[in-house]
Design a protein around this nucleic acid. Sequence first.
DNA 1: TCTGGGGTCCTTTTCCTT
DNA 2: TCTGAAGGAAAAGGACCC
Length: 409
Amino acid sequence: MTSAPKPTPHNATTRRIAHLDMDAFFASVELLRYPQLKGLPVVIGGGRNAQPQPLDDLPIDKLPLSQFARLRHYTGRGVITTATYAARAFGIGSAMGMMKAAALCPDAYLLPADFERYRDYSRRFKAIILGIAPIMENRGIDEVYIDLTDVPGGQREGGRVIARLIQKQIFLETGLTCSIGVAPNKLLAKMASELDKPNGVTVLFEADVQQRIWPLPCKTMNGIGPKSSEKLRNLGLHTLGDIAACEPHWLIEHFGNSYGAWLHAASHGTDERPVVTHSEPVSISRETTFERNLHAKRDKAQLGEVFTQLCERLASDLRHKGYQARTVGIKLRDDTFQTTTRDISLPAPVADAKAIRQAAGIALKRAPLERPLRLLGVKLSRLVKPGQAQDDTASAQNLDLFTDTQQPI
DNA sequence: TCTGGGGTCCTTTTCCTT
DNA sequence: TCTGAAGGAAAAGGACCC
């Protein structure tokens, strides 16, 4: 049953949403630790062989540059996680293959990703924000949305005053810089935060859409990726203004009901999504790309070991987060980069490594295993909290399903 | 020199039941 | 018993994001 929306106190004020994006987050955290790399091209990625070599009696921030791995010496598979601005000047960017990056700048310094450290800094900067503005939505490790609408002073200069305050506090307490966009909604705030980087604050109003947003290329909008961008280009649409000029029904005709309507609304700067302060996870997964491609038959033992490890890590993840899973799935990627997934829904939720492994084994049996594999993953979905597991009385006997000794791996 | 890992959401296809 | 339609749920794939 629906009723007319009640007038909210907000009607008196203007909705002001901020998007905060930490500047080159991982790289900046590493530069705090290794200031001697400041201003130099540094990429983050790779694994153990990217570790700086410590010297006795020398504090880590005083290590000579010769002790750091160089990109040209990197071997193995992998992509760049992130790069400093100095490295980006060489054309290196996130998700670029290591070998390609090495060709662009062989002398770039290479550091392994240290997610524990980044998570720690993430917690710290988010705590600072919450101290100033309590309605915050997590968008990954280095991004948040903040609802400034009802924060005292949140309307001053369209939100610029609070944004500067947040920036200043984060810098004082962590030494890190961030860029903030403030706008009437999340979509525009996100775009605004990209307009002035690093360490910028950009304030947008609805009236700015035509002048500031429409000239931008389609792909600058969050939600328009490489595929849609290409399709738009083929239709002769290059800027967000080009999309905005299209009739909604024409967009729906070409992009479907949901996406077509979204393109129309988004290009006009419309976005009603609220800032969400809490959400439950939908799925948990673990996957790994092998150093070399493995064959289901020839490398059965090795694959089986990895498979089991993935399931054990998932069981541990589940335990830490306090969930059980009703669906278990596997993911394979072969040497042609073709990805296959297989899911199995279970009569009762599982949580321990053995049950996950057994269910995943059943899913795996249904997947093609002729080609060499480069990736193996296991995914848990339809998560439930142990207490709220639905009324499945078949829970005990269902495990008989899994007493299958002929698993392919 | 091929292309990580962990997610969300949406669409299409397949399967099952009535 | 067979067949087809319809609808829902599950499975599979794809696009996108950080």
